[in-house]
Design a protein around this nucleic acid. Structure first.
Lengths: 153, 153
DNA sequence: TGTTGACCCTATACTGACTATAGGGCTTGT
DNA sequence: ACAAGCCCTATAGTCAGTATAGGGTCAACA
């Protein structure tokens, strides 16, 4: 099948499939006489695996590790469990962070009493206050790799 | 004050301060004879405002909009409320997504019964299953701009 | 006076997971 | 023969910074 059909079947874009090939997640398929990529069922299955992982918000590195186990069925699978556990911990951490964020924003939101002018707006006043623990980076990397509040998948 | 001191006071890195200047969030400060940036209190306050917004996971565009109100105190502040409301909705959406993700991962995690080999691992088997609603992009952009599970702040 | 070390400067490239654009070639139907 | 709709490569852009290379400035100390 050509790349457009694979894209339709997998629900991922043509350019993304080519991107996965460049990144080494999908093997390069055979080519037609006119240099078109020709995929088989194995490619479709591997792409489904990748997409399933991406829906679960895994990084390419995590996916690469899982594909490696997928490709080596004789290996022990303890590390697969550990990888999922670690990813789960990252997701849980990110949820906790966003919930804390949400509380801050709700609090911030109460500060504007419908003033007419920005100069009296409690939201802007609150944002202008320095943070308590000013030293230290914005959020540190401890706690994992689950992105913040603005995804663009 | 020089850039290093501002960085220490604000808790953000020297390179990040220069980056904010390039991006137009912070105005270019005066320079010393030796071409060092020299900041005053106004810069420190503006940087605190920016950092406060970033801690709340706002994008640069959102911050730019809020700074614009900050800089024009005579304007009405209704739009500030709306911006915060919209951001709050994005954060809430992202929390819901991540919680759904967490449930999927917990479910996935139960599938491995400590098999010796990857070929029998229920996690890998489940990941290899195609997704039900295969057509349609990985998560669509509806629902806002709050990032996924792997932030790098 | 010379030099060490901490700080500062610019410019450029990299990150992740794609998306967008430019500039073409192939295939199929009319 | 030509047009529409697919496909190809290569390059650059997204966001919010971080990393690197290659150099300049300044204060203190020997």
């Amino acid at each position: 099948m050509k790349i457009g059909e694979l894209a339709k079947r997998s629900g991922c874009r043509v350019v993304t499939i080519r991107y996965y090939e460049r990144e080494g997640l999908l093997p390069a398929p055979a080519r037609s006489a006119g240099n078109y990529r020709l995929y088989g069922e194995a490619h479709a299955e591997r792409l489904a695996f990748i997409r399933h992982c991406r829906v679960l918000d895994m990084t390419q590195d995590e996916i690469r590790a899982l594909l490696d186990y997928h490709d080596h069925p004789e290996r022990p699978c303890q590390d697969v469990d550990d990888l999922i556990d670690a990813h789960l911990a990252h997701v849980a951490d990110r949820i906790a962070q966003l919930q804390s964020l949400e509380r801050s924003l709700v609090d911030l939101r109460t500060r504007c009493q419908g003033q007419r002018f920005a100069s009296e707006c409690g939201i802007l006043k609150e944002l202008a206050r320095p943070l308590e623990g000013a030293t230290g980076q914005v959020s540190g990397e401890e706690g994992g790799h689950v992105p913040g509040a603005h995804p663009r998948l």
